[in-house]
Design a protein around this nucleic acid. Sequence first.
RNA 1: GGAGAAGUCGCCUAGUUGGUCGAGGGCGCAUGAUUGGAAAUCAUGUAAACGUUAACGCGUUUCGAGGGUUCGAAUCCCUCCUUCUCCGCCA
Length: 426
Amino acid sequence: MLDIRFVRENPEIVKENIRKKFQEQKLPLVEKALQLDAENRAIKTEVEALRSERNKASKQIGALMGQGKKEEAEQIKEEIAKKGTKIEDLSKREKEVEEELTKVMMVIPNIIDPSVPIGKDDSENVEVERFGDPNVPDFEIPYHTEIMEALKGIDLDSARKVAGNGFYYLMGDIARLHSAVISYARDFMIERGFTYCVPPFMIRSDVVSGVMSFAEMESMMYKIEGEDLFLIGTSEHSMIGKFIDTILPEKTLPQTLTSYSPCFRKEKGAHGIEERGVYRIHQFEKQEMIVICKPEDSMIWFDKLWQNTVDLFRSLEIPVRTLECCSGDLADLKVKSVDVEAWSPRQKKYFEVGSCSNLGDAQARRLKIRISGENGKYLAHTLNNTVVAPPRMLIAFLENNLQADGSISIPEPLRPYMGGKEKIER
RNA sequence: GGAGAAGUCGCCUAGUUGGUCGAGGGCGCAUGAUUGGAAAUCAUGUAAACGUUAACGCGUUUCGAGGGUUCGAAUCCCUCCUUCUCCGCCA
């Protein structure tokens, strides 16, 4: 969500930004916002003048009543009553206009960073850098569920009976590996100075609309029946929500947090649930990192954040690359975003295992997350990034660590979390 | 889940027969005076959002949130949220 003042002063920049994101259908919204803004201010001027008049008169009545001059007071009362309906009408209109304006402002996309490549959709995302050699072994790598099943590590049939498609039972050493990865990732981030946090797994609707766009909400969030609660799609939601309506002193920044949570997603729309496996599912677990910082620091933090994920995967010998999200693929709230992708020796291509985003002040404006400093108060910047989401990362892990004999070698750093095991065998 | 109490300007607190209360006091903080310097003391100032203005300023709204009654609500009514105490239940 942009600042209405920015739109007022820079309508052409806002329009150009919409064009860059290939959302031409939203161009008329800019004019609409400007018109609603003008109307809003005109109404405010008028209604506030009327209210001012009424307030003065009310004070007069108070004074007269105090002096016992009832008749004079009654006279003024009548005069005010006549104007009352006009104030009411205007107030009503004021509210309508404000609501409409907010609605429009909610769907005008955030201004993207100048460094974001221009492109229509995900096919035009740009590879930035590769880390590690994408190796392909000389034996065949099966589909990840087959690797897991061979190790008695997954039961999708039971999961379908119990919860339906898009759920899983992880079993035995694979389940343990899953927990090991989460624990390892947690400690990895704690060592880098992040504060560990376990947040609420459900959040209220006002937080939901503060942290994501309406479109996202529709396609992602599960609502609890009969309650004003939603299951979180990622701990970013409750972690950024943690700062709703707060003014942070400058010296408390940056806030760097790493959080664990299960994540629940409808996955409605574009992709849907994959038929077999744990690539795209309704429920998974994730270690996340978020940063709240001063606006001038957000790009520095952006680079530090994705680097953390790259380092984590590299510490487990998994080749990765970074892929920059092009303008058309960038969610409306985001200023810049880069995906971390892991190498799949089976598919001989990279696939997404994490996403790092700089939201600028968009979430901060919706949630009123501000910073107080020497030069007054201003909106914070918010960022988030995946440390690791184990079910999906296990695909990369298993494919890259599979041995010719069907066993899985466990990289050194993970062994303490696996009871010292060096490999998982059939 | 049941019964009761409460939510005021960074913190503590005054304010319940509705009217000079957007709100008094204390602490904290800022500036100035005093001092060789500090402490102490004294003085002044100290919420946010929005509108308007070149600016000083002026105005509107906000006393947990949202509605209502009224010319006028921190004060009365309704709904919700949160906290505390007691009881019940339960990882």
